[in-house]
Design a protein around this nucleic acid. Structure first.
Length: 456
RNA sequence: GCCGGGGUACCCGAGCGGUCUAAGGGGCCGGCCUGGAGAGCCGGUGCCCCGAUAAGGGGCGCGCGGGUUCGAAUCCCGCCCCCGGCGCCA
């Protein structure tokens, strides 16, 4: 079976047109594709017929007596000219067809809220007790109660400092100025206790997921262009990815990239599915589209560490695994005690790959906002088609594209910013979540209960 | 990075310009046989196009991409990867 999206485009283009409209994308690309695909198949058919003729003549030649050969060779040579021309056109039309095809999105899940922007995101659930500054109370309620969820909160009467100021001015354990000088904006030096905290968070996530039978993977941090193009959307290349100069290599923006490519060109027997992986890697992002947003601190940076969940599943399993991945992420933040809500991302905000995406957003007491810590997506067979990954159903020897899913477990710097605001004491000290204790106790110099303000 | 050897289908493995329609073996799927299984026998086992999601037909596929030729797994060029040696390096 071809890719499910090709099937739909050929047999039920109206479904894809409707899907485009729901995603606030131009549906005319569907008609454009249908036309190109028809043309491509017509040329393909003619080419096959010509090649068939040519094959017949070629195979006849060695059995012919010398004197008759030159006539047939001449015929074959003439046919070759026509074949070359058809091949050229097939390639040309095929390229156009493929370009249109690669811009086709996954079919949205029926529960995705339809809307052009994040205002249409739907809250799925809330957890924890948020610390809300009095001046943020209305904002907080509009983001919870007004969206149908009663989230526990307490009013606090002292000023909570923003994560960037706590890090650099109170704890004095981060230096983005110096990093800016030597590397540019959105880079950072982290020091001492914050580095231990970074390690501990990663260990915590890896420990939790490997206990759940996810296989631990340390993947390559660079991928060839061909594989990047298979796992990521085109726009991501210019907006998000760093490229190695003079080489066909891209720095990964998440472990999802190499994890997806891990099983490229394989046929995986159904009894091995689902395959669950937990990858740990640095992530490199240009953040070219972000302009001057979140320019302070380590919230949005060019480089950070992340533990990532990744799954290959049978098509009928993928939604069950989707729920499992987001639940795992939630467990991790419940363990830390970070209050959050889970939101179902609106259709207009979704990338092409995802059929549905849930974000986990933590409450930030200083900013008075919920902010994304985790993103969990089911991309169905979108990546599998490009990476050529299939499952094999023994019964009937059926091969078809596998489903692939990804979800953050913990992104270190982002999570640290959430801890800096949520566990900040009036004096600026940061209380370390109890659950991280065992990952800090391994190290004599690591902090155990609090990270304290530096006086000097 | 340099020199040498290599990459054939799910696995092993032959072929090194024209009956290659890629031999042969193993695995897997289906059928026959059986009370059931095994053994045995027969067929199938990648991608694309036509066709009705059929029967059937055709094209492509020997690491990837080009080229030479009427004809390429086989000859030539570029790239990727693996093995051995040298260099460099944590």
């Amino acid at each position: 079976m071809p890719w499910s999206v090709i099937n739909i485009l050929r047999k039920n283009p109206d479904l894809m047109r409707w899907n485009m409209l729901r995603r606030f994308k131009d549906p005319r690309i569907v008609d454009e594709f249908v036309r190109a695909d028809r043309e491509w198949r017509r040329i393909q058919r003619e080419l096959n017929e010509l090649r068939h003729k040519h094959n017949l003549i070629s195979s006849e030649i060695p059995r012919l007596p010398q004197d008759l050969r030159s006539k047939r060779i001449k015929e074959a040579r003439e046919l070759l000219g026509i074949i070359k021309e058809h091949e050229r056109r097939l390639k040309e039309v095929g390229k156009y067809r493929d370009r249109l095809l690669s811009a086709m999105p996954s079919i949205l899940h029926k529960e995705v809220p339809v809307g052009p922007n994040e205002l249409f995101n739907r809250v799925v659930r809330v957890w924890g007790r948020a610390r809300v500054q009095r001046r943020h109370l209305r904002l907080f309620l509009s983001e919870t109660l007004a969206k149908g969820f009663r989230m526990d909160y307490e009013i606090i009467d002292y000023e909570v400092m923003g994560h960037a100021d706590v890090l650099e001015k109170v704890l004095k354990l981060g230096n983005t100025l110096k990093a800016g000088k030597v590397s540019g904006s959105r880079f950072y030096y982290l020091l001492d206790d914050i580095v231990w905290l970074d390690f501990a968070l990663l260990m915590y996530a890896v420990d939790y997921l490997t206990r759940k039978r996810f296989r631990l993977v340390l993947p390559p941090y660079m991928l060839k262009g061909k594989y990047m193009a298979a796992v990521e959307e085109l726009e991501a290349f210019k907006d998000a990815l760093y490229k190695i100069e003079d080489e066909d290599l891209y720095l990964i923006a998440t472990a999802e990239h190499p994890l997806a490519a891990f099983r490229a060109d394989e046929v995986i027997p159904e009894e091995e599915l689902p395959l669950l992986y937990v990858g740990i890697s640095p992530c490199f992002r240009k953040e070219a589209g972000a302009a001057s947003r979140d320019i302070k601190g380590i919230f949005r940076v060019h480089q950070f560490h992340k533990v990532e969940q990744f799954a290959f599943t049978l098509p009928e399993q993928s939604w069950e695994i989707f729920n499992q991945l987001i639940k795992n992420a939630e467990e991790l933040y419940r363990g830390l005690g970070v209050p959050y809500r889970v939101v179902n991302i609106a259709s207009g905000e979704l990338n092409l790959r995802a059929a549905m995406k849930y974000d986990l957003e933590a409450w930030y007491p200083a900013q008075g906002r919920f902010r994304e810590l985790v993103s969990c997506s089911n991309v169905l067979d979108w990546q599998a088609y490009r990476l050529n990954i299939k499952y094999l159903r023994r019964k009937g020897m059926v091969r078809d594209y596998i489903h692939m899913l990804n979800s953050t477990a913990i992104a270190s710097t982002r999570t640290i910013t959430a801890l800096l605001e949520n566990f900040q004491k009036p004096d600026g000290a940061i209380e370390i979540p109890k659950i991280l204790r065992k990952y800090l106790e391994l190290f004599k110099e690591a902090p155990k209960d609090y990270i304290l303000p530096k006086s000097s």
